[in-house]
Nucleic acid binder design. Structure first.
Length: 889
DNA sequence: AACGTCACG
DNA sequence: ACGTACGTGACGTTT
């Protein structure tokens, strides 16, 4: 028997939208409803095997119901823009699925569906109606089943007349009476006030219909009688409104609804565009499959590529001959950490041919000419991730110079929040699909496996080709965004500086570190037994779950805050609980020491190279949305400093040469100085021009007092306000931070803005700018898109607004120190200094310096850093040196 | 793999 | 009324 699926398009899209978090793709397009809709379609096709398929949509604004009852659907909230923008996507998806769509001016989807099910009842056609709307149950019949969407979007609950009888004790048509009595606030259908589902069902079981209930109103008691009599007309009208119109002028043209499967290539294209990565991987788009559509177009268009494996003299010879015409190079590195990763090989692309050189061949005797070419700064080609491949290659004695464009950096600068900055991700984002992902080729986790040479060389070769194809596209996009200087004069030179810093590494005094670890162990042992004693039992203190049980269930301490999985036990909570029980303080101390032990002693020791006693961090240049660097393996940007106990860790970071010193240079208040410049706030500028203590100055202005009247507490509060300003202030956030009421926090902020009016203006302007452009920029044209700035959801929108305020500040500060690093590296090599730049910690640089260069370095470093970028306020740098990182403070 | 926690700027 | 301060990475536990 033929089977027709009819989907109530608006209803299902709505359900999907509210059931799923507000996903968006990298273009800022929201996709959650489209995604939910798609998963539902796929599931229906697989499970129901329909022969006919239709999606019905509401058309236009005014339906005939409005003419009869002007309040109809009046109470309904407007469709949020995040959803309405997805309807065109859903329609495009349906086209790719080759599913027919229908809408008719003046009618709702309900009416179309009602009419079709009536027509279907007259033929031998089985029908499944998919909707989130319970009213549709009235359409159920022997041949028509209603599938109601449940909470999750892909699950549905099927109702035939028997199941409706079982659940409500009603026939399908009585569903209309049910609604006539109950009403429906979302459609603004009145019903009878005070009658909900329970009462309505009772009445219907007794009297079977609205008309009968009214007729027998006299038999009802008290209030109920009154209400039914009073609102009889409303109930009649409500029933009419709830009745689905089944006489839409249309015919059962079933042939047009016949379904024979989706168009794989079109669907794949849509999934790519919407970035439905999990679906792309799950679905087999390689052939027509059993859906039997357009098998000829199923293959993604792939460029013809000739692959030459150069493993012998002849192969290398062929490559060497073509070296002058190479257009892109790809170096395949295995693993996250380039300091310890394996290099598989290199592909050299030229006009439709990729020459693949396995790495052992590249480092062998045959490939000398090829290595010379790689090392030649004049032979510039585009690559993917210059920073990483440079580090990996150099550890293996291969030099890399002459990179014309790093497509990874380009992709990052064009959209620093992009999560898939892989080569295949960039290729499909910039319109060059067809490159498989690393995961598809190598597998992931335990299943990671290098494929055989022919497959490997083809894949690496395709990557080189993709780099070549991407280059002009990215180039143009960068140009359009005014990012030419940013990438070529800042980020790419910086990548080289970073590679050098990381390869240099920083020396760790392993003996001292181990010694410190032993002291911690001894202290921890004591604290642990003390905690067990105070708690009255032994448990795993590291487990927030077990700790919560002890503190809140066993000891009965008050619950301050909850997490989504249970009690919160973070430091903020524990500090509030300290007065209640002595164990709390011990736990706080335990946490401090355990953190030092696990992360900074044991964690650090694991990263020290035994041969050299050094750690080599990997600074990542394409992670942070603001343009900051991040540091991994180990993270050397979060070494303790705030508490003395932890700060001692810094003593183990020492110079790698005897007699040398550690030199640190940090920008003083760089973010607030940047804010002064960007906002052009006169007071703030003046404060920095006169080199005042900014927090004291803020306290003076906000509290309206003189310098000597500012006490420690006032300064502390002013400091918190300054932090808040940089983060994109909210009264709530400030109140949390200062432990004051929201009102008091709001008052502080008001006082601040009354004084620093330029700052207020900036905050207003930047949010407006973000709304207008969809992005904000830093002084050096770094850009961050904020699609959620127009969200109707308060939280999402507020977050975007704070980000709009913070990113230009944090990002410009990042621009400045990056610029200083590039300039300093150049200056140090010009002056042929032996000193080495080792680390960057957002507003601080760390060097190791021989004694005879100390004076020069102190001068050069502060000079270059302070003049890295000319602002309307001076930049100030504090320089210090010592025998280790602790002493240089 | 996700969560809670905590280290830094 | 809503309910988060901005940006990161590592560790241990739990699922």
């Amino acid at each position: 028997m033929p089977k027709l699926i009819i989907i109530d398009g608006n209803s299902v899209a709505n359900r999907a939208f509210y059931a799923l978090p507000l996903l968006s793709n990298t273009q800022g397009l929201h996709t959650n409803a489209a995604y939910g809709f798609t998963t539902m379609l796929l599931k229906l096709i697989e499970e129901q095997q329909p022969t006919h398929f239709l999606v019905a949509f509401d058309a236009g604004k005014i339906t005939f119901r409005h003419k009869e009852y002007t309040e109809y659907k009046g109470g309904r909230a407007k469709t949020p823009p995040e959803l309405s923008e997805q309807f065109p996507l859903i329609k495009e998806l349906l086209t790719a699925f080759q599913i027919s769509q229908y809408e008719l001016a003046g009618y709702e989807a309900d009416d179309i569906i009602g009419t079709l099910t009536r027509l279907a009842d007259e033929t031998k056609m089985e029908v499944v109606v998919v909707t989130g709307d319970k009213d549709m149950l009235q359409l159920a019949s022997d041949q028509v089943t209603i599938a109601l969407t449940r909470k999750g979007i892909s699950e549905v609950e099927l109702y035939d007349p028997a199941q409706i009888q079982e659940k409500y004790g009603l026939t399908p048509l009585q569903i209309i009476d049910l609604k006539g009595l109950m009403g429906d606030s979302s459609d603004n259908i009145p019903g009878i006030p005070g009658v909900g589902e329970k009462t309505a069902l009772k009445l219907l079981h007794e009297y079977s219909s609205v008309e009968q209930v009214i007729e027998h109103a006299g038999e009802l008691k008290g209030k109920m009688k009154e209400k039914v009599e009073q609102h009889a007309q409303d109930a009649i009208m409500s029933k009419q409104l709830a009745t689905i119109y089944r006489e839409v002028p249309m015919e059962g043209e079933w042939d047009k609804l016949a379904y024979s499967g989706y168009d794989p290539s079109a669907l794949q294209g849509m999934f790519r565009k919407l970035e439905f990565k999990s679906l792309l991987e799950k679905m087999d788009f390689s052939g027509a499959g059993d859906n039997g559509a357009d098998s000829s177009e199923a293959e993604a268009p792939q460029e013809a590529l000739q692959v030459v494996v150069c493993a012998d003299e002849a192969g290398i010879g062929a490559l060497v001959e073509r070296l002058d015409s190479i257009q892109a190079v790809h170096i395949e590195v295995v693993g996250e950490n380039p300091h310890v990763s394996e290099v598989l090989g290199a592909a050299f692309y030229s006009d439709g041919t990729s020459y693949y050189v396995p790495f052992d061949v590249l480092t062998g005797e045959l490939a000398g000419r090829v290595c010379d070419w790689l090392a030649d700064a004049d032979k510039a080609v585009p690559v993917y991730d210059m920073h990483k491949i440079k580090v990996a290659l150099e550890w293996n004695g291969v030099a890399l110079e002459g990179v014309s464009l790093d497509v990874l950096l380009a992709g990052y600068l064009l959209d620093p929040t992009e999560s898939a900055l892989t080569l295949d991700g960039l290729a499909s984002k910039y319109g060059l699909p067809g490159l498989p992902s690393d995961e598809a080729v190598f597998g992931k986790g335990a299943k990671f496996q290098v494929p055989p040479l022919d497959a490997l060389s083809e894949y690496i070769g395709r990557k080189a080709a993709a780099i070549h194809r991407l280059t002009p596209v990215l180039h143009e996009a960068l140009e359009k965004n005014g990012m030419h200087k940013l990438i070529f004069d800042l980020e790419m030179p910086l990548a080289i500086v970073l590679a050098r810093m990381e390869r240099q590494g920083i020396s760790v005094n392993v003996e001292d570190l181990k010694q410190y670890g032993q002291e911690l162990s001894a202290q921890l042992e004591q604290i642990v037994s003390h905690i067990y004693e105070l708690a009255g039992s032994e448990f795993n203190i590291n487990s927030p779950k077990q700790l919560g049980d002890i503190l809140f269930d066993k000891l009965g301490l008050p619950v301050i805050k909850k997490t989504k999985t249970g009690y919160s036990t973070d430091a903020e909570v524990l500090e509030k609980l300290e007065p209640y029980h002595p164990v709390v303080g011990e736990i706080l101390h335990y946490r401090t020491l355990a953190k030092l032990q696990s992360t900074y002693v044991e964690g650090l020791l694991k990263e020290v190279r035994p041969e050299t006693g050094k750690v080599h961090t990997y600074f990542r240049q394409t992670i942070a949305a603001t343009g900051r660097l991040s540091s991994q393996f180990p993270n050397l940007q979060n070494i303790p400093i705030r508490l003395e106990e932890g700060r001692k860790i810094r003593k183990v970071f020492v110079p790698s040469e005897p007699g040398w010193s550690i030199l640190t240079a940090d920008y003083s208040q760089i973010e607030l100085r940047v804010l002064a410049h960007i906002s052009q706030d006169e007071r703030l500028k003046e404060a920095f021009v006169n080199d005042m203590d900014i927090h004291t100055k803020t306290a003076m202005d906000v509290f309206g007092v003189t310098a000597d009247q500012v006490d420690a507490n006032m300064r502390r509060q002013a400091k918190a306000v300054n932090f808040g300003i940089v983060y994109g202030i909210s009264d709530y956030g400030l109140s949390q931070n200062l432990n004051i009421t929201r009102k008091e926090a709001a008052h502080f902020i008001e006082q601040y803005f009354a004084v620093f009016q330029g700052v207020r203006q900036y905050m207003d302007d930047i949010v407006k700018e973000a709304r207008q452009n969809g992005y904000v920029t830093t002084l050096l044209q770094r850009r961050r898109y904020l699609p959620e700035i127009t969200a109707s959801n308060f939280n999402l929108r507020s977050f975007a607004e704070r980000t709009a305020m913070n990113t230009p500040i944090q990002g410009t500060a990042a621009d400045i120190i990056k610029l200083a690093m590039v300039k300093l590296a150049a200056r140090m090599s010009e002056e042929k200094l032996e000193s080495r730049m080792l680390l960057q910690v957002h507003d601080e640089l760390v060097f190791e310096v021989p004694p005879h260069e100390m004076e020069t370095m102190r001068r050069i470093v502060s000079e270059v850093m302070e003049s890295a970028l000319a602002l309307d306020v001076p930049l100030k740098v504090d320089v210090d040196d010592g025998l280790n990182w602790y002493e240089a403070k």
